[in-house]
Design a protein around this nucleic acid. Structure first.
Lengths: 194, 194
DNA sequence: TCTGTAGGTTAACGCCATTAACTACGTGCG
DNA sequence: CGCACGTAGTTAATGGCGTTAACCTACAGA
């Protein structure tokens, strides 16, 4: 049998893949070990605990998420940037519900937790996007929080199957983005069709 | 020792109280039993499983929540109704984070699950509130979903300690409500929704 | 070639949810 | 008035989980 098969990173990535399949709260060390072709205690050679594993998954997921948002917004401005960023977020949550849940549940363990810069990159992307709307400096934080609330709320409710009524969820999402975009624009201009 | 101390309802209510203190995912049968001055297996005489307990908590919580929203909106209209309902929701989540999490995680077990009418009462309250804005009938669902997303997202992020930046969360909330209110008013939202 | 380290194993512990088997209280019937 | 039965509660046992301890052994470097 070959040795040195597993590393903290490989365990984390396998955990991230698993968590998307079975859900954040259903992650178990036994299932992950089996997936990796190893007995459960072997994981503890690479990860100190299940909480540590979850935190590592959160970090790589938040970094992935930050990349997705940045890539979507990059090269666009104003309404286009908002629509693209919002879609990117929704898509990420749809494709990686477990990763997103892990990333969102995590709290920094200290001042040099790599989770912090990852979170900051997400915030920076949204802030850059909002800059295109030329808000008053005092309103930027509020707009940021509103945006985050609306997108987070929509994405998680959708991922949890919370939208039961028979009406297109896609339509609701673009409607919401339009609504937010128009409200963010100065009252005069608004030529955003779809 | 007296008998017949516990009932399904009393167990559920004690569970609801406990879940607010320790968090939805930390609920354990042992802790609840201890709280009730009884051994763990005794709970199974009133509740079939921990999942059943969580579901019962979800039902009473959703009913409570529906009452809170209804009471807040009752007698108000338009912007006032929105502000009051939104505040009521935020307050409920702040005071009862575990109950809210349980209510939100629950899914109806069948067509005659009492959870369903409770959910419908919540939806009905929000729909009644929105009626004051005289939206096109096709837009009502979208507005409802947006409202729910924004309020759910804000409340849960706040309850989870997700707003770290040093700026008044209260201010952000009222700012968001104002934003939504203005966008919903017919005069300024005439071009919404293609 | 020998040795130390590190990634893996098996075995064991404690906590949890759940079930089985049993006990005793108190109601309601004779 | 007493007895029987239903039921709220008990103790004991099972199985699954995360975790730790003790051990084994393949491989790297002296």
């Amino acid at each position: 049998m070959p040795r040195a098969r597993l590393t903290p990173l490989s365990v984390t990535e396998a955990g991230a893949a698993l968590i998307d399949e079975i859900g954040f709260e259903n992650l178990s060390m036994g299932m992950l070990a089996e997936r990796l072709g190893v007995k459960t205690p072997a994981l503890y050679k690479h990860v100190t605990s299940q909480a540590d594993l979850a935190h590592r998954i959160a970090i790589v997921s938040m970094a992935e998420f930050a990349d997705a948002i940045r890539d979507a917004i990059q090269g666009r401005a104003g309404s286009d940037a908002l629509a693209a960023g919002a879609q990117a977020m929704r898509t990420y949550v749809q494709e990686h519900p477990g990763r997103y849940a892990a990333a969102n549940a995590a709290r920094p363990t200290g001042p040099d937790d790599p989770l912090i810069p990852a979170v900051e990159r997400v915030v920076a992307s949204w802030a850059a996007m909002l800059r295109g709307y030329h808000l008053d400096s005092g309103q930027e934080i509020h707009a940021l929080r509103m945006l985050r609330s609306a997108l987070h709320g929509f994405s998680t409710l959708e991922a949890a199957g919370g939208f039961q009524i028979d009406a297109s969820v896609d339509d609701s999402f673009t409607w919401m983005i339009n609504f937010l975009d128009q409200g963010l624009h100065p009252a005069t201009s608004s030529t955003l069709g779809r």
